[in-house]
């Protein structure tokens, strides 16, 4: 009787230590998935045990397309960047001062980790939670996610973590996009070889007024169509209707805001209109001149006049229709605008 009592006593005494999740165990778990512990119904109780010695940062997310959580999908690579940077510097999960910090993640799957979500009583995603060492598994605090994405958000979260844990040597490494590096190198090499091989053609291209003119006009149209807005604000490419069925091309009613696709549409409109004007000024007289004499040199003025007439008319009609489209599109963005060129039947 006493022996069993002693055994039980020793077991009860040592079991917590054995079952307590040590930093080594955590780091082993983390190294299985390259620095981010994946939480499942089976292992989360053990990992979030109260006897842990490290801080744990948990991301509860749902990247399934059906859930449609855009913020989750934005946050995923940022979280991975944070965890990877931490893992790169500290593969054991320990900072210089000996404090441990680990990153964990649970991507919602009803079969594998729904218990994790229930444990934290979470019904909105994404949630970034923070557990202190020696804390109760049910006591956690939430880290606020700043609205601005990208590096600003990562740096803000890192600052919060620094304040909370006192770890000062948390450096963020932005992963090198090997794909784009390779493509750039390949393209540069290809262009250099081509230029070397076809030197006279390249020289002619570089000095050609038309090439420079088209390039300049392209750049001007791009900037006038709001390209800088997209690159500074990082605007969405296009919107979706509430039920996800159709794509919205224009942000209606918002004169100070736009989608990425609006730049492209409006850029094309400007390009067509400018080409119509250039065509009217340059192409029509050239065509008239071309058709003024036929191959044998006899003047065929009626043909030239007719060509001039039809070309001009087609340019004018295109101009009118596209300008009407531009006015209509602007009316979408600024509903109080009173002028229109074309009566749109569906508006």
């Amino acid at each position: 009787m006493r022996f069993t009592q002693l055994a039980v006593f020793f077991a009860a005494f040592f079991l917590p230590f054995i079952s307590a999740i040590s930093n080594e165990k955590l780091s082993k778990e983390a190294s299985r998935y390259k620095g981010i512990i994946q939480l499942t119904n089976n292992n989360f109780k053990r990992i979030l045990d109260s006897k842990r010695e490290a801080y744990i940062v948990v991301l509860l997310t749902a990247t399934n397309a059906q859930v449609g959580c855009t913020l989750c999908m934005e946050l995923d690579p940022e979280f991975s960047m944070m965890a990877d940077s931490w893992y790169k510097d500290h593969p054991e999960g320990l900072s210089e001062s000996g404090t441990g910090m680990f990153f964990a993640r649970a991507d919602f799957d009803p079969k594998k980790n729904s218990d994790v979500f229930m444990h934290f009583k979470v019904n909105n995603v994404p949630r970034l939670l923070f557990l202190t060492p020696q804390g109760d598994p049910s006591s956690f605090s939430q880290i606020n996610l700043p609205g601005e994405g990208g590096m600003t958000r990562v740096l803000a979260i890192v600052n919060t973590l620094r304040d909370a844990t006192g770890i000062s040597d948390f450096k963020i490494y932005q992963p090198i996009n090997w794909g784009s590096v390779f493509v750039t190198a390949f393209a540069t090499a290809a262009v250099t070889l081509l230029v070397k091989k076809y030197k006279p053609v390249a020289a002619k291209l570089i000095t050609s007024k038309y090439v420079w003119g088209l390039a300049t006009v392209f750049v001007i149209i791009l900037w006038n169509a709001g390209y800088m807005f997209n690159s500074i604000r990082g605007s969405q490419f296009a919107g979706m209707t509430q039920d996800g069925s159709a794509v919205i091309y224009f942000m209606e009613g918002q004169q100070q805001n736009q989608f990425g696709i609006e730049t492209q549409i409006v850029g094309v409109i400007y390009g067509v209109l400018a080409s119509c004007v250039a065509g009217l000024v340059l192409f029509v007289p050239y065509a008239k001149q071309f058709y003024a004499t036929d191959k044998s040199g006899r003047p065929t003025l009626s043909k030239a006049c007719f060509v001039e007439f039809s070309l001009t008319l087609s340019f004018l009609v295109t101009l009118y229709l596209v300008y009407g489209a531009l006015t209509g599109v602007f009316k979408l963005k600024s509903p109080g605008y009173p002028f229109k060129l074309i009566k749109f039947p569906f508006h």
Binding site: A225, Q256, L273, L326
Partner: peptide, 21 residues
């Protein structure tokens, strides 16, 4: 954003690239 350009100059904004060309 692009509506500001059109709002401030209307049809001048598409004559502008044509003029430059």
């Amino acid at each position: 954003a692009w509506p500001a350009f059109f709002f401030d100059t209307q049809f001048l904004i598409w004559l502008f690239p044509a003029g430059v060309f």
